[in-house]
Simulated scan of single mutants.
Amino acid sequence: MAEGIVVATTGDVPDGEGIAVAADVLGTVDDVAVFNDGGEFYALDDTCSHEKASLAEGWVEDGAVECPLHSARFCLADGSVLSMPATRAVACHRVVVDGDDIRVIPDPGRLRE
């Protein structure tokens, strides 16, 4: 069996978009957003570090997601801040594509105790 928890299939996440996965599914402290950027899949904590907005509802382009509320941008590969008003990174989770299944391996530091 492959690592991680199956959260979607590749067909569930259109190119340039994201979906939110409930924290209960992964056992994480925040919902997790899974993104498709040109066929590459990424996972970040879903809540923008600047305000309480869902990054899964943001715009995905060129390896970044832009928050739909105030346009802060985050790197899909590591969650780092690419533009203000955000000043804190969001957590990044490992993604494994297994056939058509998208598996997320949560960051151990972001698991509920």
Score class of each variant (00 low, 15 high):
D15S: 07
P14M: 02
E61C: 11
D98Y: 02
T28K: 07
D98C: 11
A22G: 09
T9P: 09
K52N: 15
F74D: 08
A56F: 11
A20H: 04
I19S: 07
S71I: 05
V29N: 07
E57V: 09
A43E: 13
G58S: 10
A22S: 05
T10A: 07
T87F: 14
G99P: 11
P68S: 11
A33M: 07
C75V: 15
D62R: 14
A86R: 05
D24G: 09
V7Y: 11
N36I: 04
S71R: 13
V32M: 03
S49Y: 02
V21Y: 00
L76T: 03
S71T: 13
V7P: 00
V90C: 13
D101C: 13
G11S: 13
L55Y: 02
D101P: 11
D30G: 06
D37A: 03
D98F: 06
A20F: 06
F41M: 08
L76Y: 06
R73M: 10
G63P: 01
G38W: 01
G99N: 15
C67E: 10
L82G: 09
A72T: 03
S49F: 03
V13N: 07
L55C: 13
G18D: 12
A91C: 05
A89T: 02
C67Q: 00
A53T: 12
R73I: 05
H93S: 14
G79M: 11
E17V: 04
V81M: 06
R73C: 11
P14G: 01
W59E: 05
D100Y: 04
W59C: 00
S49H: 02
T87P: 00
A64Q: 14
D15I: 07
H70Q: 13
Y42E: 01
A56D: 12
S49L: 09
V29K: 05
K52R: 15
L26T: 03
H70T: 14
F41C: 08
T10E: 09
G99L: 09
N36Q: 01
T47H: 05
V32L: 08
L69F: 14
V81K: 01
A20I: 07
V21S: 01
V60G: 13
G11Y: 13
V29L: 10
F74S: 06
C67N: 09
D30P: 06
D24V: 13
A86Y: 04
D98H: 10
V97C: 07
E61D: 11
G16N: 02
L69C: 08
T87Y: 11
C75L: 15
L76S: 07
C75S: 15
S83F: 01
